[in-house]
Amino acid sequence: MKIKEGFKLRTIVGEHIVTGEGLAQVNFNKIISLNETAAYLWEHVTGKEFSVEDLTKLLLDEYDVDEATASKDAAAIADKWIEIGIVEK
């Protein structure tokens, strides 16, 4: 999967916010708030193809978490990103 063209993460007064920018997302009128962990994942998969396994590995690299939990959380956030339309398979 990959982040759809035109979505950009910005940090505004400490908040991580994804907005639709660029011509590809000119009609996207929501803003999405990411927590620290989601922002960390987003930054590391921006501009490339990634899988749930890649997200799991990123979580394991950065956080003190067991693999089963990391894998479950990675799958959950990937599903969420696809559901709200900012990531495509």
Binding site: V13, I17, L23
Partner: peptide, 23 residues
């Protein structure tokens, strides 16, 4: 909150977010 304030300004101001410099 900061997030709510951002959403308010974002939705209430004119501009064209397709242009990177403008955004």
């Amino acid at each position: 909150s900061v997030l709510e304030a951002y959403a308010l300004l974002y939705s209430s101001s004119s501009g064209f977010k397709a242009d990177p410099a403008m955004s």
